[in-house]
């Protein structure tokens, strides 16, 4: 099986505070990998390291390496913009730009210099269809994205991410701000997307991890405690800490 990411001995510090400690793991292609753990365990940090969004924070020090498609993403000559076009991201809170639905999705391609209205139209439609949102919004593409419901906004953000034709989509607790019905829709969508994309998802919701992911990694205090097939983690974890967490004894 091919890997999308190979993470090796990754350490990350915010100033003096250690956030990730000696993480080593592989993230396989075209599968869903879930990162779970209590708040502050470093799972979001790990996710954001994968497309180098942590660059935006001051005082971050990273050592160890992450290879994406065999290339070291921390290498000096490595093009971070290129990385981010390949590795898309969906955030915890739906965050559409204050523009129309169309402009939101066309934003990424436009930044890459696509100006042809027809091409853009096609990209927007395809992305919306792939994000299972097209039928709901096809008549109001010119309206503000802010007027959509929370679940729709999140699917719009997913559509915006897949408009870039990424290989990987990182999802940072994408359903934590949504109601159960909207959550179910997003989960269906994620399972659908798995066919084309590698997905890494951070989630607080263990049922969600169990339902949708192929692999699950359990992090605690910046350390990777256990990483295995999802059914193994949830049915027969090797570590007691994992078991305690999964059975709800702490966290």
């Amino acid at each position: 099986m091919e890997n999308a990411f190979t993470i090796n001995q990754l350490n990350l510090k915010y100033g003096e505070k250690k956030a990730l400690d000696q993480i080593t793991m592989d993230i396989p292609k075209n599968q869903i990998t879930a990162l779970i753990g209590p708040s502050g365990c470093g799972k979001s940090t790990l996710l954001r390291t994968l497309n180098r969004m942590n660059d935006l924070i001051d005082n971050v020090r990273i050592d160890g390496d992450i290879r994406y498609e065999e290339q070291d993403i921390f290498a000096k000559e490595y093009d971070v913009i290129n990385l981010r076009t390949k590795v898309g991201m969906v955030f915890q809170k739906p965050n559409p730009f204050p523009m129309s639905i169309f402009d939101n999705i066309a934003y990424g391609p436009r930044c890459q210099g696509i100006k042809d209205r027809k091409v853009l139209q096609e990209i927007v439609e395809r992305s919306l269809i792939n994000a299972a949102l097209y039928d709901e919004v096809k008549d109001r593409l010119k309206e503000s994205a802010k007027e959509l419901s929370g679940g729709q906004q999140q699917r719009l953000c997913i559509a915006r991410a897949i408009a870039m034709e990424p290989d990987v989509i990182l999802m940072d607790e994408p359903t934590s701000a949504l109601d159960p019905i909207a959550t179910a829709k997003i989960e269906d969508l994620i399972l659908e997307l798995k066919k084309k994309y590698t997905i890494v998802i951070v989630t607080h919701n263990m049922q969600q991890a169990a339902r949708i992911s192929d692999n699950t990694a359990f992090l605690l205090m910046g350390e990777l405690i256990e990483y295995d097939k999802t059914d193994i983690i949830f049915s027969n974890p090797k570590e007691t800490k994992t078991e305690e967490y999964i059975t709800g004894r702490f966290g």
Partner: peptide
């Protein structure tokens, strides 16, 4: 979709 001419851009 057809790959964008990413390098120039």
């Amino acid at each position: 979709f057809p790959i964008f001419k990413i390098w120039d851009v």
